[in-house]
Design a protein around this nucleic acid. Structure first.
Lengths: 333, 333
DNA sequence: CTGAAAGCGCTAACAC
DNA sequence: GTGTTAGCGCTTTCAG
């Protein structure tokens, strides 16, 4: 029933070795037998089993991509750009959602690697760094991180300069005359520099950041909404909120509307990521843009290099974010 | 270097069969040797090779998911719901983007199946139906379609009732007194019933639908924007637009804003899908909601059933859409 | 130019 | 309770 290399060999009246050779364009075979084999493959509708081939050492021309949550537009865009560049280079990509959950990370890691992908892109925060390390060191799987970092690991990494991004956002708000600025951050590593930069900028401006002006939560619109609600009901309510990603910012906008606060007149909001959301919200979101397209392309290229030959030095590429000013921020009256 | 079942066996001083048995909880082994093996596995940091196991007939507990474009929030949500239900049931999911491209469909199909996934969910429009058919019939791969249909194939399918959805949208606009209603549809099968229902409702109301009131395009905000621009510059400009998905609708809103048309007073807009976008746009979008969560859960359950034993009858489940009225539609002055 | 044979890592009879 | 062995579908020396 199942058509494999044997069926084809039988049909063509040759050995399986010969079939393998025509499949892989290796060795040399006469034009005549090549045709015979091709015809047999066609007739039986043969598809080579990539997994079995890779078991024997062949490349799969596929890479794996681990993201925390594909329904976050930022990661969807990252996935898009990686897919595009990979496709140009002749590679397929298989994506998996980790939800920043250690168990899922583990499961998908072993699933993906035993599927014998040729390389792995990790966009997930990754709690279990030892697993990744083992994979790189012991198993020699090429790995590149994108939009996530693991400082203690020597690993190729591409991120935006999160510190600079945070600083950009804070400075913008400060330059608009805001003094009571709150921040909503996601509880992942990439948000730490954003928060640090924010605090730093505030300190430079001689402004306090009360504890209750700092909220940490998950990257969900709903969470942004809840956090903003809490912030907006403080006695000393902030006049501006820096939301560490667009999802959160979208939630902030909803909360403000519910309270009949006009954005940007009663409340300024800046987001981060410059995803679709930032142009569909109203007012459109002032946000810090990550060069997603470039990051995706670069990560794929780096991975390919690493696949060619593991290099002794790992790169750590920091791309510059840009502030995109739209309509969600205004100067204090 | 590579740690496999042999290394573990050697380390534990047993045979590979014994190791296999403790891994799979099959046969019976004494508590003592079990411990020994477990200890060896732990010491060597052994991970079983799922691909090799499946080559020998074992299940992988993984399913594949083919979507057209994960950066469309609708598919991201579909993926989310499938991931969630699968995870509850102990399955992993590997997603791939086809971009409705025949070559990619082919590549990913053979990649996924030779990775020996236990089943496949297809949310992609799928041009190459013969490939799917062969996979089902000849190779016996359990397949379920979600939010996409292939009428001529006998295959498990879960979709929303697109006809009803289109009818709901059109009727709503009609009941608001609109007479000049345009439609922007995506050029895929699922949009055909939406368009047909729209025409039907218009006809019932005795209203004409001029050819230039029907635009077909791709599911991209940008395309929605362009289409709307075109529609809005007609001499007889429509007073309402039915955009066949939220992405398109978001584009329409942008175009209207650019032209200083107020929504819903100068132009009513209804979308389809009820994705995140519909609550972040302003005004919030009146849209037709698909029960994504239920659809995702159901598709997984159906797939599991099919995996247990291929049933002679295939199901075709049509879920009811619902009209969600928000602020982007109003009655004609 | 073609084929026989070994083996990738694993599971599942079947012996012992 | 444990081990031997025969493959799963494929690639790759190495002979002929």
């Amino acid at each position: 029933m199942k058509v494999n290399i044997h069926s084809v060999a039988r049909e063509a009246g040759v050995s399986i070795a010969t079939v393998s050779k025509v499949i892989n364009h290796t060795g040399s075979i006469s034009e005549q037998t090549r045709k015979k084999v091709l015809a047999a493959m066609d007739k039986l509708n043969y598809h080579r089993d990539i997994a079995a081939a890779s078991l024997r050492g062949k490349r799969t021309n596929a890479i794996g991509l681990l993201v925390p949550d594909i329904s976050n537009p930022f990661y969807a865009d990252i996935a898009r750009s990686i897919e595009d560049r990979s496709h140009e280079l002749g590679f397929s990509v298989m994506m998996c959602n980790t939800d920043n959950d250690t168990d899922k990370e583990k499961t998908y890691l072993s699933l993906l690697t035993s599927q014998r992908i040729d390389g792995l892109v990790v966009a997930s925060a990754f709690r279990s760094t030892d697993l990744l390390e083992e994979l790189m060191e012991k198993q020699g799987v090429p790995i590149v991180l994108i939009a996530s970092e693991i400082p203690k690991l020597s690993i190729n990494t591409i991120t935006v300069d999160d510190y600079k991004g945070g600083y950009l956002a804070a400075s913008h708000l400060l330059s608009l005359g805001h003094k009571r600025i709150a921040i909503i951050a996601e509880n992942v590593r990439s948000n730490e520099p954003r928060l640090a930069a924010f605090k730093h900028a505030m300190q430079e401006a001689g402004l306090p950041v009360p504890d209750d002006y700092i909220v940490k939560t998950e990257a969900l619109i709903q969470k942004g909404y809840e956090s903003a609600k809490q912030l907006l009901s403080l006695k000393e309510r902030p006049t501006a909120i820096f939301a560490c990603n667009d999802l959160l910012a979208a939630g902030v906008i909803q909360a403000a509307k519910e309270r009949d606060l006009s954005i940007p007149y009663d409340l300024s909001v800046v987001g981060f990521d410059n995803t679709v959301l930032s142009t569909t919200t109203s007012p459109m979101l002032t946000t810090v843009s990550q060069p997603i397209k470039e990051m995706g392309a670069k990560v794929v290229e780096l991975l390919m290099q690493e696949m060619e030959a593991s290099r002794p030095y790992k790169e750590r590429l920091l791309l510059s974010p840009k502030l995109i000013v739209r309509q969600s921020t205004a100067s204090l009256p």
